[in-house]
Design a protein around this nucleic acid. Structure first.
Lengths: 340, 340
DNA sequence: CTGAAAGCGCTTACAG
DNA sequence: CTGAAAGCGCTTACAG
């Protein structure tokens, strides 16, 4: 430990460097140590510190996909919420993949102070055996019984906290909007990841549509990863079935999926919303300049990240904290449903 | 080390776990150790391993912004190129910010096997004092002398390798395209980060435009972070000056900037490309569904990431490797310059 | 081929 | 208030 150039012992330096000098180190020595640290640009070796103390100031964010701007917003929120005390590092899983046990083991080996996981699946959570603070984002419990499904209430028996969007509110606003416009047969283009939030979007859509005398046509072929081209292809594949079923409005798992639909629709000469109204989830920034501009359920990723960071900090520091708020999900209406 | 349940010594386990058992451990023992490891799901503690061996299997990717889908593509390429041997973790700097010395120190404390930095500035590189393998992406050297500026050649005296795009080729294709269409006065909406690639885009544009008898109007007010709204505002601010200068075509530092321009242009009732042709860099997926679809210099982020990973692996493992290829940057022509 | 031992750079009780 | 010492969980020469 080079910084003992301050003329004190290693222990004293360690104390000061970790801000634990209150009432342990004289103000004079503390000051000299701080100077020495500043002069040498000293940073405690992460490995040694983690090994000795059994923890670190690392927070790992596990996200299934980084190419969706939505995740950029979440990261921004996390960074803002975490502040300077913790260093955020992002672990990106392959597109459409769920983190594996092996990948998790390697993350655990880093001994992070906390882990944040976005849009996991139930299977992933089963497998998760982390002894660090953990917060889930957009990880709604799926209803497991028909009673639950009917009531919308879900047993809250999960190990980790989850900060969630008000998907139900968003779906209701969406369906009310489409209902007023006269749509009764809807299609759903899903996200092909083992992610529960996509599944829930579909379930909520089906349940709430039924209440309104509408019908949702969804199946396992009508889905793709979060990628414009993949979504465009999935739409081309599914459209004949939807058309035959009389579908006049299509709900997409994300805006990126919706972009793919817009592209295919244009290629097929299909007017949007004339022949098919299109809606997405996310409300990406670019949805205001798409052709046509996209109606979308806005999912404020930054607010989600910020709330997630708060929950995580409380857990890391052993504080109790108010339960995470449900992040509002408003419908933003644009020309892809109402025309110009 | 729990895995000595295999009935061998700690050292033997360590050897096997690290694949260094060739000719050191009997096949029988090696097998027993492997079994024990598998059964216990053992993963060597990263901190202890890094501390003892002085290195790790961690690769850190430093990127200035995660909300641009372009970076998602780079990450995909890096992951693919790195394979399973190294774990990729992404460190996201604030939008428009450059990593600070402190942030770098904390990264160094992680003792990564390698570091990859996207779109750094020269100042950042000066400050960089890393003793690990380092590869730069999209970090072209700026011409520092007028002779260099004139020739386009730049002294290759940099500490780290850089994998770059053929920005010059892209700029030339772009200008030829605009020239044929009759544009002579161009605007440039820049990226407000201390990132050299944005600066170089502007320099190349100015130099190549001059050769073609065109003029580029660029200044320090005409720039914004990579954010649609920010770019839209910057455009509104700059448009009067450009209009007075007779600008008929606008080149944007990224597609995201261009989206902002499209939004403002629509709000101002300005036909694109009728009154103003618009071009971006990146060719994001959503540029095919923007209104109008965007002409853009395609920057293949995935190829860049893959090439970067190759260079990094060679450096980590002490191999020599062919110099990184220059990644081609083609012009993709769409309606934002040629109309429908 | 195998095991006992030193050491990586810190933190944290514990004496002084 | 301060320093000497043990120990975090590994890896790596080094004897055997």
């Amino acid at each position: 430990m080079v910084a003992e150039r301050a003329g004190t012992s290693v222990a004293t330096v360690s104390l000061v460097a970790n801000g634990k000098d209150a009432g342990h180190v004289s103000a004079q020595n503390a000051e000299r140590v701080r100077q020495a640290i500043a002069e040498l640009g000293y940073v405690a070796d992460h490995a040694a510190r983690a090994l000795a103390s059994g923890s670190s100031n690392l927070v790992v964010f596990v996200t299934p996909d980084a190419s969706n701007p939505y995740f950029g917003a979440v990261i921004r929120g996390l960074r803002a919420g975490l502040g300077d005390a913790y260093q955020l590092l992002v672990s990106v899983t392959g597109e459409g993949d769920v983190p594996t046990a092996a990948a998790l083991g390697r993350l655990a080996a880093l001994r992070p102070a906390g882990v944040v996981v976005d849009a996991p699946s139930e299977a992933f959570l089963e497998e998760l055996r982390l002894d660090t603070a953990l917060v889930l984002l957009d990880a709604p419990r799926l209803p497991t019984t028909t009673a639950e499904a009917a009531s919308g209430a879900v047993a809250a028996d999960r190990r980790a906290v989850s900060v969630d969007f008000d998907l139900l509110g968003g779906v209701r606003a969406l369906l009310d909007h489409l209902h007023v416009l006269g749509h009764r047969q809807l299609g759903y283009l899903g996200g092909r990841t083992a992610t529960d939030t996509f599944l829930l979007r579909r379930l909520l859509l089906e349940r709430e549509a039924a209440v309104r005398g509408m019908r949702v046509h969804a199946d396992d072929r009508a889905e793709s990863i979060i990628d414009l081209e993949a979504a465009a292809a999935a739409f081309v594949d599914s459209w004949p079935r939807w058309r035959d079923a009389g579908v006049t409005a299509l709900v997409c798992a994300t805006d990126t999926h919706a972009y793919g639909v817009l592209q295919s629709a244009r290629a097929m000469g299909m007017p949007v919303p004339g022949e098919l109204a299109v809606v997405g989830f996310d409300d990406l920034a670019s949805s205001v300049v798409s052709d046509p501009p996209l109606t979308s359920v806005r999912l404020p990723g930054e607010a989600l990240g910020r709330a997630g960071a708060e929950q995580l900090l409380a857990r890391i520091e052993g504080r109790t904290v108010a339960p995470a708020p449900v992040i509002g999900a408003d419908l933003v209406i644009r020309a892809s449903t109402i025309g110009r």
